[in-house]
Amino acid sequence: MAETVVFARPQALAPVTTHYCPGCTHGVIHRLVAEVLDELGLRERTVGIAPVGCSVLAYNYFATDFHEAAHGRAPAVATGIKRARPDLIVFAYQGDGDLASIGMAEIVHAANRGEKVTVVFVNNAIYGMTGGQMAPTTMPGQVATTCPLGRDVNLAGYPIRVAELLATLRTPAFVARAAVHTPLHAVTAKEMLRRAFRYQAEGTCFSLVEVLSTCPTNWGIPPVEATAWVEKNMVPYYPLGVFKTPDGPDRAPRPAPVVEA
């Protein structure tokens, strides 16, 4: 009987072991991105950008050319690469501290300029790499090392909903939020990533997929509980779905045309 391959490593993933903790979904998200690059036939002209965060070594895990970025600056680096070589497929892979705290200016402006790049935004509600400090996305009441009594929204404000925030920009874009804590969610996440990369390949628009991710290590719970924590605590606050499409109805008010004085 002939063997049928039902599961193999995507070509866009390097044959190496990652350093991610057990139960961390960074690895799942890497795989989904790699599968999409393979399926769309984009691997050979892709340049990825690794952030500063737990995925800082992403350049060792993808079998594509890669560029490092300083903390939060991946969208600026992506802009530089894409403007220099518009024929390349450029994606930035960023954590929530990276993108929504130190790099907020870079992401808002890259999105607003409509850079034809794709951002994979991994929201795990914590600073993973530095040991569990509060992120702009940390949930109200969630304990982190720099909010040991839980996030106090009177002092730290509410978690930033990045997808919703970027969706207010008038510039056409694809903005969505997905999760990967169950296989079904992962399938939907992959669909969104596929759309995001397709829009870029077609030269249509900026695209960003926010992916809710686990950090059992710094949440201080076992992996299985971490997936339940995503469902119970994150999904209600960070609703899943598509927030903006390049051809969809625009939520932002249409500005009046400039009138010569």
Partner: peptide, 26 residues
């Protein structure tokens, strides 16, 4: 060629970082 007005000098320096990494003069 391409001119981009960056949102800050922080961003500009990281844009030239990316552009230079692609091998183009910047």
């Amino acid at each position: 060629g391409t001119f981009v007005q960056a949102e800050s000098e922080v961003a500009a320096s990281n844009m030239i970082y990316g552009a230079a990494g692609s091998g183009e003069r910047v």
